[in-house]
Nucleic acid binder design. Structure first.
Length: 210
DNA sequence: AGCCAGGCTACCG
DNA sequence: CGGTAGCATGGC
């Protein structure tokens, strides 16, 4: 069997095994099998902020920081941009790296305002300080519904374990491998990414139990 | 009690 | 160029 053709099969078996995941919580709630988010600009901005806050930290911490920002009235590009640094930093403490992330949020807020409602390109996102490939792709897929595949450490681990990608393959190469062997469908990419993470976590649990 | 989480930048050789 | 220290917190 050719490697690429297994990609869709694996998706179906993961979906059968774990069911729909509802990867991105909106308003503190998960919405499995509903790919219609974001419903408005506020939700869209919040997903972008969450994507930045979630860098190299458990989602739990990022989520707490998102809640704090909302409570502080900062879940708005203009307000976030004008917020005093100490206030911003203290709100995002649970997400770790608060000095760096405060700057990242400000840089993103400025960029977001300048978009004036239009969708950004991947290039534009990558040009922002603090936004790398994975965060850019997460924003495109989850905040804008652009069918772009999000590669993360889990995808690398799972698929190099299956010998389908090289463990040291570069980000865009892995991304192309997925995108080139799947229908270009945002809902599918959304679910697949979530299933990969779910699967990786299940494997880890199993390993820990041994 | 250390390791690792839904990464990225800066700097080193 | 590729490799890696540094960034910070919290859960296990």
């Amino acid at each position: 069997m050719e490697k690429g053709s297994r990609i869709l099969q694996i998706y179906h078996s993961l979906l059968e095994k774990y069911g729909t995941q509802g990867w991105w919580p909106i308003g503190g709630k998960y919405h499995p099998a509903d790919y219609s988010f974001p419903k408005n600009g506020k939700q869209r901005f919040e997903i972008c902020i969450g994507a930045i806050l979630a860098q190299s930290i458990s989602w739990k911490g990022a989520e707490k920081a998102v809640m704090n920002l909302r409570k502080a009235g900062l879940m708005d590009a203009g307000k976030l941009l004008r917020a005093p640094m100490p206030k911003l930093k203290s709100a995002i403490v649970p997400a770790g790296y608060f000095n760096q992330k405060a700057r990242k949020l400000k840089e993103f807020a400025r960029f977001y305002l300048a978009l004036n409602g239009r969708a950004p390109s991947r290039e534009e996102l990558l040009s922002i300080w603090g936004i790398g490939k994975e965060t850019a792709d997460s924003i495109l897929l989850y905040a804008y519904g652009v069918p772009t595949f999000v590669v993360d450490a889990y995808a690398r681990r799972v698929f190099s374990g299956l010998r389908l990608v090289r463990r040291d393959a570069d980000y865009d190469k892995i991304k192309q491998f997925f995108e080139g062997n799947l229908p270009k469908d945002a809902a599918l990419f959304n679910e697949y990414h979530a299933l990969i993470v779910r699967h990786a976590k299940e494997m880890k649990k199993k390993k820990a139990a041994n």
